[in-house]
Structure formats: structure tokens, C-alpha cells
Design a binder for these strands. Sequence first.
DNA 1: AAGTCTATCAACCGCATCGAC
DNA 2: TGTCGATGCGGTTGATAGACT
Length: 277
Amino acid sequence: MGRSPCCAKVGLHRGPWTAKEDELLVQYIQSHGEGNWKLLPKQAGLLRCGKSCRLRWMNYLRPDIKRGNITPEEEDLVTRLHGLLGNRWSLIAGRLPGRTDNEIKNYWNSHLSKKINNKVIPLPKFTSKSVSKTSKKNNNKKIVNQKKSKKIDHKTINTETKIHFPRPVRISSFRWEESRPSIGTNSGSHSIEESEIMGRESVTPDNASDDFLWSDLGDLNVLVDDMEVPHVVNCVTLEDPFEANIMLENLYEEYSRLLFSEEYHPTIDDFTDSLFA
DNA sequence: AAGTCTATCAACCGCATCGAC
DNA sequence: TGTCGATGCGGTTGATAGACT
């Protein structure tokens, strides 16, 4: 006889969250911060298990969640990272600030895996038109889903993609006092987050340069030549589309070099080590 | 118009991992 | 060193809504 699910306790709610439950959870975390998930529901007045609360917060309510559809650039990155990491969704999501592992996983299962199966593999070079050709049916479906999506933020559609440097670490515990985002906005695009994580250097868009990009990508460079000292930011958004494109191109070249290098074949351990080094 | 099919994604489940003791 | 509890992760499920017949 297996153990019963954590939510199987009598009286606990399951299924979709109500607006009221969301509000209670957000309010509690606003004042107390994340963590202590087991006690949280009781203290917040929620009839949910802690696990459910954590999942709801991490995947939906967290203010730095990026709303809107996956961009072609993000899709391209996910495809290549999956080629390198496999189903390590949390690691992949860690390279896409504002995106959750669940979202990436769902997107992969519903979109990308089919593309891969159809042998439509994005080229390593960056192109904003790297979206693979899909059947008419699939295109229609995509349009439909854009209409359907509850999460859609129309401000993010048909606008320049905001570029985020890869995160050096997984999403750290969120403290409301530190970033003060607002619920229900596209707050994933806040221009910069303070990043003193692990004593690393913060960089502002003003001093972000190509030099910095390559330096920032040092955690990847480590995989390639094991000599770069990373200066890593947690999350940076560039507002200048032109500069953003150049930097994104460099980013993709870096990933491509890594993924298609004949001399060096990184392992997952290398990659994860680089994230936490 | 109604029934069926299909895609999507939020939520759940169970196992793995980590840290405290 | 082993145990236990908390948390994280990845696979899976199920509700929903649009497309299709």
C-alpha cells in the first residue's frame, strides 16, 4: 500500500486555484516571503497543501514570471539546450528568466518535440526568422492558442524580444522586499535585478557591452576552455533592440560553439557545475 | 448544430535530493 | 552514519476550448 498523496487530507482543496486563494497566497508571501511551505497554507488561511501552494507560486503567481508566448529566440534556445541537457527542465528554465520549468516542459511536449520529430531543427546561427516551417494546421493552431491563452499579455506580442542573460543559478528564493514587483503585470521585464548572489558582480545596461557579454557568458566559456572567470548577472534586460540583437547573436554563437564543438563535448555535470560554481 | 477529436497547460503525483539532527 | 522532514524535479493527468466532421 503506497503512501497517500500529500493533498489527500480531508478538507484540502484540489484542482484549479480560485482568485481568492491566489490573493491569500500572494498576500502571505508579500509579507512573509517564500519558504516554509508546509506551514504556509495554515498560516495564510488556505485549504491547500504546501506543495500545491509552492507550485502555484512558482509556476503562476511569482511576479517575475514572464507572460506571453514563447518567442522564436527562446524557442531556438530551448531546442539547443534540450539537445545538450535533455529533459533537465529546471536547468533549461534557469537560462530563460521568467520562464518556468513547467512552462518549458509543456511547450516542449506540445510544440518542439513534434518539430524535432519532423526533423525541423533550428540552425545554430541566430535568425529572428528561425521559426520552423509548420503545417498549415499547426499554424492555425498556434494562432488559436494565442487567442486562447489566458496568460497572454498583448504588450509583449509583436514587440522586440527583451534579452536576458542566462541565469547563473536557479531561481533563488524570492523576497518581496527585494524586488517589489507587481502582480498581473509584465514585470518579468524589469530592467535589472540586483545580483549579489554568491558575491558576483552586478552589471547595469549602461555598462553592459559585448565584452561583458562574453565575460558574463563565462560560465559557458568554462565549459569550452576552462579559463574564463565569470562575472555573472542574475537577469539583465536590454531595452535597446539593436544592441539586444547583437548580444543575442553572440549568445547564440556561444551556445552553438558549445553544442557543435568537435573538440569538446560537455557533459551535463559540466553544465550544472558551471551554474553553481 | 451537435458530437468528436486534438492541443494546450495548470495541477498533481511520486521519487530524488539535501540539510539538520 | 542513518533517519527524517522539507523542498525540488520531471513525468503524467485531466479540464478546457477550438477545430474538425
